[in-house]
Design a protein around this nucleic acid. Structure first.
Length: 279
DNA sequence: CACAGCTCCTGAATGC
DNA sequence: TGCATTCAGGAGCTGT
């Protein structure tokens, strides 16, 4: 599942290979590849130059030399690969952008959006302030300069729902998905079903700091990969899976106390935690 | 406005 | 072996 660390790995890879290039062709190959709210077909941005590659939370966008952005969300299984147009197309290829430019010549001249489960999408959007329209309602992620830790802590503490689904709410803090929510809660020693209102200021602050720590470490490792569903732009897997303490570790010993990791389902999600460390 | 619940989708894993 | 069911979850939408 691509969460902030995986999307950041993809963003950095795209920035390296595609910044400054022009888009020569664009095409989509699946009815759900382009978001229905896209203001124009992908072909409308042919001829534009890519100025930078940006991210907020799990949303990614290419800033162009015109007031439109190419926005992408990877959903559950999306990948953005930078490949040679001559290499074999993937079975789940959903869209592609042919690039010009001499930097890496023909070996890295196409962005390919591949997505098995089709929860991901790309779209052409205008800006609402500093970000594309579909990103405007998404909260700052913890790595943005404008992220206000004190304000986020206060907002979380005002809520009456459980902490786990609150961490997953992209309108409060963006970038955290099921994997890093479970890992953050374990590090902060907080049970996923605790009601936000019942947590102290210090506890919520510690939790967000744990989320920042775990995601920073995951970025350094190139993200978490379980299977073929997450790859960087070169098609390579990240290494953070081996550092996971609880996610996917049901029955395995807690790295802190040795108690078997439990798994429960609530809010239509599975949660992994240590019943001894996280009360 | 807050929040719970539902939906989209594919393929691997599991059940019988 | 084969067929059916279950499971994974990001985010947007609906209803209360």
């Amino acid at each position: 599942m691509p969460e902030l660390p995986e999307v950041e790995t993809v963003r950095a890879g795209l920035a390296k290979y595609v910044t400054g290039k022009r888009i020569l062709q664009a095409a989509d190959f699946h009815p759900r590849a382009v978001k229905p709210t896209s203001i124009a077909p992908l072909s409308s941005i042919v001829g534009s130059q890519i100025k930078s590659v940006n991210r907020r939370g799990k949303f990614l966008w290419l800033t162009l030399d015109r007031p439109h952005a190419i926005v992408a969300h990877l959903g559950m299984s999306g990948q953005l690969l930078v490949q040679s147009t001559e290499s074999k197309a993937h079975k789940h290829l959903r869209a592609s952008f042919l690039l010009s430019g001499s930097k890496f010549s023909r070996s890295q001249n196409e962005i390919r959006f591949v997505d098995q489960r089709t929860f991901g999408w790309v779209s052409i959007e205008e800006y609402l302030g500093d970000v594309p329209t579909s990103v405007a309602h998404i909260a700052f992620d913890p790595f943005e300069d404008n992220f206000d830790l004190a304000a986020v802590v206060k907002r979380i503490r005002s809520r009456k729902s459980a902490i786990k689904p609150t961490l997953l709410n992209q309108e409060i803090v963006s970038g955290i998905g099921n994997i890093y929510a479970d890992e953050s809660l374990w590090r902060a020693k907080i049970h996923p079903e605790v009601i936000c209102e019942d947590l102290s200021n210090a506890e919520v602050k510690r939790l967000i700091k744990c989320a920042i720590d775990v995601m920073s470490e995951a970025i350094s490792a190139g993200g978490t990969s379980f299977d073929e569903q997450y790859k960087n732009v070169n098609g390579e897997s990240g290494y953070f899976e081996r550092s996971l303490a609880v996610y996917g570790q049901e029955g395995e010993p807690c790295p802190r106390c040795g108690t078997a990791i439990a798994r429960i389902a609530f809010a239509n999600r599975s949660s992994h935690f240590c019943q001894r460390c996280q009360r």
